[in-house]
Design a protein around this nucleic acid. Structure first.
Lengths: 238, 238
DNA sequence: GACAAGAAATGGTTGTACCAATTCCACATT
DNA sequence: AATGTGGAATTGGTACAACCATTTCTTGTC
């Protein structure tokens, strides 16, 4: 056996099944809790690793795995000889804010579209100025796939990727992440086949206008095309 | 010694300076390289940890830190007793791969301001149409307090409250939450007293223009006033 | 050939020791 | 009294070794 490159042939569970909780995972949660409870803000420093390991009843190794993860998530930053510092509110928190919302379903959807109508036209305008040819190709690819895909769910995912790719083309990672979260919040809206057909047609026309504007590097046209697109979709959905 | 909650008072380098390369970081890079070179795809499995640690000449601990990070990034998934498997790349990764560079502290701030410049003028325009007299009073209150407050930190908080109150006046809870998170992400920017004075003056003039537009229920004027305000602040800060 | 028991492999966890950078503090110098 | 200054203490970084828990492979039995 060559050790690696082994296709796990049969009943491979791609989805992490029941998933035993690792030590470091609970520690990550505990540290997050600690930060919140102690109201630790940017610049404050965490108790020493040895002390935390003792407090949480885990080895320093496990604790450090948690630190690494939090560091990778941008929550902490380590400084040898000094300590582990709290970083500025992570982008993750901003993103999380989009996840919540308790309100009624239509209210929630309305709010979301309002946000999209504020944000996406501007993103599109910026993308018109910033996009590389490679990024433009990616955007075009997604738009094409949307048109040729039969499966409705798959089509919705591709449509989201289209919008995300435009956000990515701005070169602003924050905008990309925010848009991704917005898309996650957009629940798959069930509808009748005829409604879908109509929506798809309207949507595809919108995509073409947007791509044309992006190709022309015409930021004003791009802004307007996206504004119209979102507005049309909203009318269809709500 | 209170162990934590210690503001690193003076020469705090918020920007991770030269940054000595940790062992695990280079290992992360090496594993990524390994995956590419060996053309490992989703479902394939990595060589055992002990073997990799030996190959890369690092302790198993350091190697495992790298594994954790890659796991957190969604590149790997570990299965006890079996091995570390390569995860399927999501199309999000594809899009992401097309851009995004540094991550430097200034870049982050720039991204944030870009988002604010996209969002807040529109929020302000909407608020001009939607705000009740009571909400207007709240907004005015915060603006006044900003002008009369001596303490710098307190002033910054009040300024944030001013912006949040405007978002609240839109009646869109989502917008309010997003703006709150954006504000949390804005680092307290240290600066000299003269800089502060100048910034405060510019800021207060902006607030007055914004309030005037809101009172007049002139959404276009409100949009423009906020656009100018954010733009001015950005120039001062960056 | 099927199946069960045990051996081997592999990730998960712990403990200890030491290195490297930083911070702290007592003491000497001025 | 203010200021260096050098060493001790603190704290994160790395390493080695051992053992546990789960999975996988091997072997022997029927």
């Amino acid at each position: 056996m060559k050790t690696h490159k082994t296709k796990s042939s049969n009943s491979n569970n791609a989805a992490p099944n029941t998933h035993t909780v690792r030590a470091y995972e609970s520690v990550v949660a505990k540290i997050r809790l600690l930060i919140e409870e102690e109201k630790l803000g940017p610049g404050d420093l965490l108790p020493p690793e040895r002390q935390l390991a003792d407090r949480f009843k885990v080895s320093r190794h496990s604790l450090r795995e948690a630190i690494r993860v939090l560091q990778e998530q941008g929550v902490l930053s380590a400084k040898q000889g000094s300590g582990n510092y709290i970083q500025a509110a992570s982008q993750a928190d901003l993103i999380r804010a989009l996840g919540f919302t308790s309100k009624g379903s239509t209210r929630r959807l309305f709010d979301l579209f309002q946000l999209r109508e504020m944000l996406e036209p501007q993103i599109c305008a910026l993308a018109a100025e910033m996009a590389t040819t490679e990024q433009l190709n990616t955007i075009r690819d997604f738009a094409e796939k949307v048109e040729t895909t039969e499966d409705f769910q798959e089509g919705q995912k591709l449509d989201q990727s289209f919008h995300e790719a435009i956000a990515a083309a701005t070169g602003n990672e924050l905008l990309y992440n925010v848009l991704r979260e917005i898309n996650k919040s957009m629940l798959p809206t069930a509808s009748t086949p005829t409604e879908r057909q109509r929506r798809d047609r309207v949507s595809n026309e919108g995509h073409r206008r947007i791509i044309a504007a992006l190709e022309a590097q015409d930021s004003e046209a791009a802004r307007e095309a996206m504004r119209l697109h979102i507005s049309e979709i909203r009318s269809e959905v709500i």
